[in-house]
Amino acid sequence: MDYAAVVGVEIFYAVAVLVLISAGLAVIFGMMRVINLAHGEFLTLGGYAAIVSHQAGVNIYLAMLVVAPLVVAVFGVLVERLIIRWLYGRLINTMLATWGLSLAMMGAMTMIFGNTTTGIATPIAGFTFGRYQLSGYNLFVILMAIVVAVGLYLALKTTRAGLIARGAMQNAEMTSAFGYSPSRVYLITFAAGSALAGLAGGVMAPLVGLNPASGANYIAKAFITVIAGGASVVSGALASAGLFGVISQTFTLLTTPAVGEIALLVVAIILLRLLPTGITGRFFKGRV
């Protein structure tokens, strides 16, 4: 019984990690149709922001939850103004540009922080559950994922800004006719997506050994989650993160971690063969 609870927490945790690392990408891709291949480096930048500011004496929660998203959001604004905004509607070109950006960021971070692994300790101690030991920080990650998903849903569904954003994505000219500037909406959306990436990077920082190439560990999973999720930002990411998290953890527990990774990829391939527009292309259509 205790074991079932421990396994349950681990599965929820895996799902939460997928939700967190893909939320920023989902916003940018789902709403703007921009494939940000530098997403992994955005996460890494968030991680470094959290670690560096914490080492400089900032409270760890402040570093993870405020400093990291802020730094990456500011960086996102720069990227949008300098690179992305010239390339809207040109999918291949944005991919090429952001891929170049990803390489440049990796190089720059190597120059600044060195080609070494750094990290900070988790701020929450583990606790005993029955005869098992559970990581308190995993529960915190799950909580953060819920906050992000609910917050994103409410922001898009119930606020006026969310409404305008969705409107601009569907029909930029009409939004413009109503007196809103699509260019500003794009900028804010990109900044929000970047902030979410920074948040994920910050929250994951205490759990990983961070180095300039760390983004590569996450980028593939984040992309699979977003592409398989389909057009709807929140429900798509939740549905596919839930599916992939459960599958990979179940296989990892029953067999080996290598099989867990393979199972995730196989399921993703089958899913995209059957549902080329993603889960929300068929189910939950039209949801946020």
Partner: peptide
């Protein structure tokens, strides 16, 4: 004995398995 591909960075399930 569990083997991990070099890019695996999440060990939650393994930690549960070890405890079992």
């Amino acid at each position: 004995t569990d083997f991990f591909p070099l890019d695996v960075a999440d060990f939650g399930a393994t930690i549960a398995k070890i405890q079992d």
